[in-house]
Write a protein that binds this DNA or RNA. Sequence first.
DNA 1: GCATTGGACTTAAACGTTTCAGAACAAGCC
DNA 2: GGCTTGTTCTGAAACGTTTAAGTCCAATGC
Lengths: 354, 354
Amino acid sequence: MPTDARPSRLRLADVARTLGVSVATVSNAFNRPDQLSPALRKLVLERAEELGYRGPGIEGRLLRTGHAGAIALYIPEPMTYLMQDAFVRTFMSALMEACQARQVGLLLLPAIPHEKSERPRPPAALDVAAVDAIIFYGLAGDDPVIQRAVERGRPVIGIDMPDRDGLIGIGVDDAGGARAAARHLIKKGHRTIGIISLPTTRHRSDREGSPGDFSVASIRFPKERWQGYAEAFTEAGIEPSTVPIRICKLNARESGRAAMDALLDRNVDRPTAVLAMSDVVAQGGMDACRERGVKVPQDMAIVGFDDAPFAAQLGLTTVAQDAAAKAETAVRCALGEPVEETSVPTSLIERATS
Amino acid sequence: MPTDARPSRLRLADVARTLGVSVATVSNAFNRPDQLSPALRKLVLERAEELGYRGPGIEGRLLRTGHAGAIALYIPEPMTYLMQDAFVRTFMSALMEACQARQVGLLLLPAIPHEKSERPRPPAALDVAAVDAIIFYGLAGDDPVIQRAVERGRPVIGIDMPDRDGLIGIGVDDAGGARAAARHLIKKGHRTIGIISLPTTRHRSDREGSPGDFSVASIRFPKERWQGYAEAFTEAGIEPSTVPIRICKLNARESGRAAMDALLDRNVDRPTAVLAMSDVVAQGGMDACRERGVKVPQDMAIVGFDDAPFAAQLGLTTVAQDAAAKAETAVRCALGEPVEETSVPTSLIERATS
DNA sequence: GCATTGGACTTAAACGTTTCAGAACAAGCC
DNA sequence: GGCTTGTTCTGAAACGTTTAAGTCCAATGC
């Protein structure tokens, strides 16, 4: 280590001093070209380059304007979840691309730990992070962190969440995608179709469900997807209240397996097809069929949701979400760019399981 | 509050005012408990909670103290690369865990685009991001962004990079890993073991080498890895100066192939095993063996270095790096925590090639 | 020639926080 | 009683930037 006494960064004032102009002029050279003559601007910029001044630092600017040049992503899970789930990774990639294109930083916020602990806990990163907006992913609609984020007075975006006071919800057209999936199975001749649902509230368990669960759901997409399924059923003359439903504890393969098991155990109304609310639980369902010797799609047709990367390998018919559009829209909203529509389209991808 | 149209965040001053104390006192209540009586501190904290004040915001603090509560990660690739490569994902997960544990944000910086463009380009995120430190990953040792980062006057960490003025390099324990690899082959009964080395200086060519090349090496890894190999040889009573060495021009498959070719061409001391300094050149060596009908591992055992993602598929025995420790150490350095050792342990992974 | 306009640059006041240097006061020591 | 020491709180000056308001001056219109 050399004996560099003062490695402090250069400031506007340093550039201003060597040129004999005011700091305002230097600031304007960088931010408001119309406020000074082109000749002087060129001079200032050249001198800045010469000195190694890279432009106005964030410290002062953040205080003065509140503009941070980054957006935050918050998930209620440990951060590593972003790397684990293949579907999430797809979304993340798209989010990164959107940020990259705008040269904006993406700040991953640590989930706030469950706090039984001491009262004077330090302010959470979520509360103080230097960002222009916060994007939530995988959050329940009634999570209290939403309120905290909104209080910060910056745009707050919720992926797969309903709009809410101060929260811009971005989602796929869940109802439309689900309707298409259900119609597809009905067209194939199925009349008894089971549902494998994702959890509808924060209180979670693997259990039997009913349409009533969806009307009180605090998590949006199961609700909306059910509505889509139900619409298609009604169209076809199938009474939605008679449809067998299993609700999963988690979006996990094992939960899907258990749900399919329960459906196959039924004596009456044993379904010939299943609509799964995610590809992950659909995959679990396929596991259960294989174990029990139930042939897919002959004895059991399956349609997933998400078009996760592994769905193609499995030959799983599924509803594709445009994850890229979702991420792009989220970043647009975050940065205050004009955005026409906050729900993105879906499309049914027919493969071997139906 | 019905009348207040302003959604502006609460400030220290707001809390101070309602209590009739000075802002300094409120600030101290949050940051320096020893500066006021416990009773008053309690009062202040309670009132803050009541008002919904979450603690001193980043804007002022950043300006005053420069403390941002986040660290940046910069890779010279598009950000999405972080999601694509399995080896990188492992590192990322570990990095996230380290950040999560400390409740520190992880800011992903967009790579600076190749700039043929207009002169007055806006300051890059790398230059202005609100972070306490910058971690580089996958960067060439002479990339000019290092200089820019160092100029910011914050800790700069380089993963798999040599130390450099202002840059803290974090790497694996090269000597230890190499020693383990050599011991492994010796234990298997090999006595004539060839070395396929990475380049030792900036002047590069595919050529024969000798121990002297390593004592004058200007590049760190080969030197250290050779030391590890040599130790193990000496232990086993093998004179290091008699060991056949090939030095590659590049860390490239083709160079590895050429090196193995040369070793197999030897009439005397034709090796029965090879220690390669990277998985890439090891892979090249395997190519050469296949072409010449030399059976691996029967006629030629091979041990690589790195545990690159493709190593498992190839069945290549190699020296794995502890990605988690690397990430943990990087974060430690970034946050100025005491760190005893900036080189991280390795472990030998035995597969089919030895 | 004198007011008016507009361009080019400067002045100075924020923005919210931290922290150094006191102030006020009480207690202890000689 | 004067002096030091300590405790608890306050005043005020930074930190680096942006920007509304203002100054200066040359050009224009009459």
